[in-house]
Computed example of a mutant assay.
Amino acid sequence: MSGRTRTPPRWWFDGAAPPLWARALAGVYGSAVAMRRGLYARGLRRRLRADAPVIVIGNLIAGGSGKTPLAIALVERLRAAGWTPGVASRGYGRDRAEEALWVEAGTPVELSGDEPLLIARRTGVRVRVDRDRAAAARALVATGCDVVVCDDGLQHYRLRRDLEIEVIDGRRRYGNGLLIPAGPLREPAARSADVAFRVVNAGTAVPGEADAEAAGFGEWSMRLHSTRALPLLGGRALSLDAFTGKRVHAVAGIGDPERFFAGLRARGIGVVPHAFPDHHRYVADDLRFGSDLPVLMTEKDAVKCAALAGERHYSVPVDAQLPEAFWVALLDRLQALRTDPR
């Protein structure tokens, strides 16, 4: 059973009781997850190592939680610290998924997947998509990368990892705490105790808000900061403040569209919301809303909509902000791996 879903069942997050059939299937799913993890833990399935440290970013629930902004921020911090990072990803939903591919800024999104293309455009680092993440990591190291960031790979146990970062949606957390399909969990919540860092996506920062400190014991708070809107057809960026007090169409095809809508409302923007499934493939009719308002969309959606855009379509990039102590702790752990590799 897939860890992703197009539209989450209502009982995952709204407090309703899941149906009996979902609870029964969750038991079967849980047994399969435990068996698979046990095979790797006992060495009965081989785990492959890249010749460089591997940092895996992921989550325990199906759907998005803010992993891609964190991956971008991590890559930029690693590069600033003197590392040569590369990004390995499955490239969910791409055409010809069986073929490995180097993703560059001009790669067609249907071949790369939306998240790898966004990372490649924002960072300029080497990005490799492959169903076999271990093969992707090794390809990155072969081209000179000395650290591999694996986007959305917490459950891909075949790739041996040195550090794991769990990203938690601060609004939805673990939902009802049950396994798929009775709940949103890909693995039991107890799996969280094994990761090196737990990052809580606490929402969108608003102007003047102080940097958040740790969200709780063993957790770090992350804020997604947006200040500008970029025309999809090119041209001068606008401040988001230019839309304050105005109505806009807001487009979000991410794991939790409400997070994007709430961030715009927090800036005093009147939102006409248009939520789409995560990784949605847009067609022209999707962006025809019947009124000539500006259209603001997430950066992840914008990489798929450039060919459909008009002069009133804008992308809203976000930057992940975390306490400086988080980066110090992570880089210290990573430096220890460089000087004393396991």
Rank of each mutant, 00 (worst) to 15 (best):
I180T: 06
L331D: 06
R198N: 12
G86Q: 11
A105Q: 05
F217L: 02
R312C: 01
T298Y: 06
L154I: 13
H225D: 13
I269F: 05
I254M: 09
D332G: 15
C305S: 04
L185C: 12
P317C: 04
A182Q: 10
I55T: 05
V295M: 02
L337W: 12
A190S: 15
V272E: 15
A336G: 10
L287R: 02
R46F: 00
A71I: 01
D286I: 01
L334V: 11
W12N: 06
W220V: 07
A190M: 07
T143F: 00
F260N: 11
E219L: 12
A41I: 04
L330T: 12
G234D: 05
R6G: 06
P341A: 07
L179S: 09
H313E: 07
R247I: 00
R259S: 14
P9S: 05
T7Q: 13
A320D: 03
Y157M: 08
P9H: 04
L111Y: 05
R128P: 03
L334T: 12
E209F: 00
A252S: 14
S31I: 07
P273H: 08
G106W: 00
A189F: 14
R312K: 10
A214G: 09
V295C: 09
A309P: 02
P181Y: 05
K304P: 06
G245E: 11
L20M: 08
T84D: 11
P184L: 08
R158Y: 04
V328I: 13
L20F: 07
V147R: 08
L140P: 07
R4E: 15
E258I: 01
E219M: 12
V318G: 11
A50Y: 08
V283M: 01
P188A: 14
L140N: 06
A242L: 00
A97C: 02
A120P: 00
G268S: 06
I119K: 05
L185Y: 12
E104A: 14
T227K: 05
E219I: 01
I269M: 04
T298A: 07
R333K: 14
S2E: 15
P108S: 03
R77L: 05
F243N: 07
I61K: 07
D152V: 02
R236H: 02
L39W: 15
